[in-house]
Simulated scan of single mutants.
Amino acid sequence: MKILINLFGRFDRLDTSINKWLVNNSILLLRISMGLVFLGFGILKFFIGVSPIESLATRTTTVLTLGVFAGHNAMIFVASLECVIGLCFLTGMFLRVGVWLLAVQMIGAMSPLLIYTGELFPGPMHAPTLAAQYIIKDIILIAAGMVIASTWTGAKIVARPQTMRSSLKKRIPNVYKNLKMVPD
């Protein structure tokens, strides 16, 4: 039994160390990951026939821009937007602009769910097509963008280390809110 308690104690210290590392690095890694995703998928859209969502994205962009961008120009517009977002997130420069562009891009990316509902959820059970699933997963990008946006004024995650043993009895870990509004 003593060996088991010793092993649990070691694991508990490892868990606490990992948590401290995550507090210090997770938002940076999230920002870089999102930057890579947007830059990578944006670059694909510059090339005709490479992006699996090309047809749907082209039609949606044409509708949303009232025909200002149509055909391959619509894809160039979306590709450029995604690459700019990716670069903002990767470099951390103009991050506030990048997050606002992300918000605009996500409105466009999610809009086919309303514009082309019948096409994206066909059949008797209204199961989503692969394209619909591709769009629905953008909810995660929206949430990640919100986390990154919360840091653009310098906010950080604050570590309040707890042992695993002390947190096992709680349904959810304590969330400490210490918000002080700073006047302009």
Rank of each mutant, 00 (worst) to 15 (best):
Q105I: 02
I172T: 10
T60N: 13
P173H: 09
G71A: 09
S51I: 07
W152N: 02
L56C: 06
I48F: 06
F46C: 01
S33M: 08
G108W: 09
V158F: 05
A132V: 01
P52K: 14
V68P: 00
P173T: 11
L56D: 04
L28H: 05
F89H: 03
S51E: 10
K45P: 01
H72N: 14
T117W: 13
I32N: 04
G145E: 01
D138M: 02
F41T: 13
R59T: 06
G118M: 08
G86S: 10
I148W: 01
L7G: 02
M181L: 12
P183S: 08
R31Y: 04
G154T: 04
C83L: 10
K45H: 06
F46H: 02
G154F: 08
I85E: 01
D12T: 07
N6E: 10
F89G: 00
V99H: 02
G71H: 12
S167Q: 09
W152C: 03
N174R: 10
I157G: 00
G118T: 13
I76Q: 09
P52Q: 14
M1C: 03
G118N: 15
T58A: 13
L66H: 14
V78Q: 05
A131Q: 12
L4N: 11
T129D: 00
M125T: 08
V37E: 09
V50C: 00
